[in-house]
Nucleic acid binder design. Structure first.
Lengths: 140, 140
DNA sequence: TTATTTGCAAACGGTTTGCCGATTA
DNA sequence: TAATCGGCAAACCGTTTGCAAATAA
């Protein structure tokens, strides 16, 4: 589970090219100072990637990001902001500050359980879910 | 609360043009046979609208839909499908069949409460939320 | 009348793709 | 070597916008 991206690629039969290694490196370093993913978009990834290898094209970033998503390595988010944003796969939800855009990650076991229950109730088994909370900071 | 779209427009100071009336009409008739919204995208709206008034342009549909959204009449959804889809404002969540694309609407008071609790926990007051469950139908 | 709206077509911005030389396994 | 990949630039597609004519209030 805590394999590196490169290991995951190998186990999924994804060819490891230089460009993909660089992109993988940037992705695994995409953490905020609190250790959470900072959810970069493709442009942002592209600028970080070209610092390590200036010859990589943005088309490659798009292709790689899609590849990694299909391999179950990355998760794509749309939020309410036009551009798609990516982060390493992990099972958590997002609380988004509608004033600042700050993103807080959280998990809540109880909510997870209830989600499963709702799906069951309609005769479905839950495959995936997306929960986004939008809020404003309260005065202390 | 159960005002018609036209009434809402008037109370929000939105000018009622012929085109907007037609689009409002189509939107309020956008129900599945079970009375749920069928979540049309702009293209779909456009084809329905032009059946009533063939001269309306797609630009007007885009502008109107955005206007109605800003007026709190419509809700825009992105789901995982490229095009934005719209429905009359209502407070419910979506369970999406990943095989068929069928959309089931649901509300769950318990989940709502927990969401509010999570936001509070991080010092936020909840302004909006989005919950999507993706599932597959179980064998009976 | 006057500010707003519409239709048209062109522009936009994020994303995808065809071609072909380069690279991986 | 065979299959896949990457760079480039052009295409794509949903959405937005500038402009002049039309229209709601």
């Amino acid at each position: 589970m805590s394999d590196t991206i490169e290991q995951k690629c190998i186990s999924k039969g994804v060819k490891l090219t230089d460009q993909r290694k660089v992109i993988a490196k940037v992705l695994s370093e995409s953490k905020s100072e609190y250790g959470e993913s900072d959810h970069p978009d493709v442009d942002e990834l592209y600028t970080r990637v070209t610092k390590l290898d200036p010859k990589i094209s943005i088309a490659t970033v798009y292709r790689t990001v899609k590849l990694f998503e299909e391999a179950g390595i990355l998760t794509k988010h749309d939020f309410k902001t036009g551009k798609a944003r990516y982060e390493l796969n992990d099972d958590h939800n997002h609380l988004i500050d509608i004033k600042t855009g700050e993103i807080i990650e959280f998990v809540d076991e109880e909510i997870e359980k209830l989600q499963k229950k709702v799906a069951e109730k309609y005769g479905y088994s839950l495959v995936d879910h997306k929960l986004e909370l939008y809020g404003v900071k309260k005065k202390p």
